[in-house]
Design a protein around this nucleic acid. Structure first.
Lengths: 345, 345
DNA sequence: TCAAAAGTGTTATCCTTACACCCATGT
DNA sequence: ACATGGGTGTAAGGATAACACTTTTGA
């Protein structure tokens, strides 16, 4: 090996440092049942089950959290394997589709570091599963992901919370910005992300929206640890989560919404055979918008995404529906097969 | 804090382990000049400048590497800030657009771990920059990214190397797979990724293609460290890089190609004003395919992506060209503004 | 018989693609 | 004059979005 390359190698040797590093693996495990997109969450207490009211001053003491497991650096496995391992151990779920989302490494994102603990770097994953097996752990359960991000669900029209709570609060935040050019930039960003002032609502921008709410301190997660209860600003609702887990959830939702359009990931969430309404229901649940029935059906059928399985189901409430299955050959035919959302420009 | 939540916290405390963890930040820094997409690479020796011949048995002793810097866990900054910091320190470049790509954590991906060194987790970033400032470091330089991934450049038609080297080598690899169902699955995967057997070429699948070449041991990076020179399989060309850096490069290229279509990232690589040909040249350089001139122009103009700046340039070789600039307002008007490639289904 | 959900048909409109052709400069 | 690259017009085909309408079940 040449001297140059050896020098580069040497640069990688660890410097002595008082702070050690820990890798945490966090998983957003998604399943859709009866039109509800659910994620597996742990650590919540039962008395906290009722969702907080809009605008109520609140700071839950035992917030929900995403399931996670530490990485054993001496273990002889990849990050993915480690993740699958502890998820199966803790919950009994064997994950199918798994995708790395993002690595979060802000200092002090875990309060433990303040107490002299290690610096925790979290590698977040998105996992999709068909079954909602009740988790093996006592304190884990499947929860509607829109309890955490209620402004993301537009299926019943524009969510009340946007007009009643979020828009005025963000306007107030914007007027509080002194520097004019900064204010203009932020106003544009808010308009684009939240669809204010005539901008369109883009379901994929879930992370950017959460990020803005965080910067504007409209989510309890952004408030300092030691804020006295009476000085807390009002929460724009949405159930909080531990640490930055809601940010991770928003990342997962945005990524999944994007992926729907160009990869056939929906089928990871459906049984082998399904009706077109079921398929549409899952897409709607995840994207958070309603789709035009006839056009949706034509798109997936003529797009070669599904084929009739031959069977029919009578459990529809109306006329029996044909059963379909995913048509794998589409992978050969089209470069980016997925379910196009309207206005996907 | 409730007992449940506290238990969760405690699970995050570090276990005693003989193996320590190190975080490395690696950057794929991209710039496009004169139609060549370049990345900043370090650590190569001058005598290795000539590209290896197709099919030559070779194992460069001082491979090129991506620039990287270790994360100081006690430093009070985010991963992004740390990255910008050492890039500016080492190269003098101040990065504009920066995006996290992926975190690589396979054990023993760095041979140092075998020698009892720490487990290295690499967080890879994609960074775009306009200027090709000659790097401050002696052994850093800008290099055509297709020297590393020659099969990805279809601008002059289908690359020779695909038909002459890669396709036969992969066919041989496939016939060597004993289990029939596995062989069928892998054959389908190869066809889809490389566009064999009538499948279309999808520029975005750069990572999947590299991954296959790696699994088929067609890149030197996949060969065992101690392979004697005479037993080395033939390389399907493409200049190798250190560790898994070529995989990181492939990740970056695929991601960038995808992003071009729905986010206006090209403009991060162009000066403030530019001609439409320059714009097209950059898109072509990155996507690796030629685009239809007139349609491209109409798409970006009627799509509201650019506006005339008023000026013209005479350094074209033909008729002077109007200068354009990026039209920021498009962000408001369209949910996902980008440059559509042909056949984007 | 009616509600509910499945499924079919048709049309106007826009966007993509491909082709042919003209324009302004340097040599 | 001509080569070179910049720029315009137009027509065919396909995809999208919005309509109204029929069919088949359970209650």
């Amino acid at each position: 090996m040449s001297k140059v390359a050896r020098d580069n190698m040497d640069a990688r040797r660890p410097q002595p440092s008082p702070v050690t590093i820990m890798i945490g693996l966090e998983a957003v495990i998604v399943a859709v049942t009866e039109g509800v997109p659910r994620i597996l969450s742990v650590g919540h207490t039962d008395h906290a089950l009722s969702p907080p009211e809009h605008g109520v001053r609140t700071r839950p003491e035992a917030p929900d959290a995403l399931p996670f497991g530490p990485l054993d650096p001496s273990a002889d496995c990849t990050l993915d394997q480690a993740l699958r391992g502890w998820v199966s151990e803790q919950t009994g779920l064997s994950l199918g589709y798994v995708e790395q989302l993002y690595t979060f490494g802000d200092p002090y994102r875990d309060p433990l570091q303040r107490e002299g603990g290690p610096r925790v770097i979290s590698v977040a994953y998105l996992a999709l599963t068909r079954e909602c097996v009740p988790a093996r752990e006592q304190n884990a359960s499947w929860r509607d992901c829109y309890t955490y991000l209620p402004w993301e669900d537009w299926r019943e029209g524009r969510p009340q919370i946007l007009g009643h709570v979020i828009e005025p609060a963000l306007q107030q935040w914007l007027t509080g910005i002194n520097e004019p050019s900064r204010q203009r930039r932020q106003r544009e960003r808010v308009d684009i992300c939240f669809g204010f002032s005539g901008s369109a609502w883009d379901p994929e921008r879930a992370l950017e929206r959460y990020q803005i709410l965080y910067e504007a301190a409209l989510v309890p997660e952004a408030w300092p640890q030691d804020t006295p209860a009476e000085r807390l600003p009002t929460s724009p609702s949405g159930r909080p989560m531990a640490l930055d887990h809601r940010r991770i959830l928003a990342t997962a939702l945005g990524r999944l919404r994007g992926k729907l359009k160009y990869r056939p990931v929906v089928f990871e969430l459906l049984p082998d055979t399904f009706t077109l309404s079921q398929l549409q229901g899952v897409v709607e649940a995840l994207s958070g918008v309603r789709l035009h029935k006839q056009n949706f059906r034509r798109l997936v059928e003529k797009g070669g995404l599904v084929e009739e399985s031959g069977g029919t189901t009578f459990s529809t409430g109306g006329r029996p529906a044909k059963l379909f299955r995913f048509r794998r050959e589409v992978l050969r035919e089209r470069p980016a097969p997925g379910v196009r959302l309207p206005g996907a420009s």
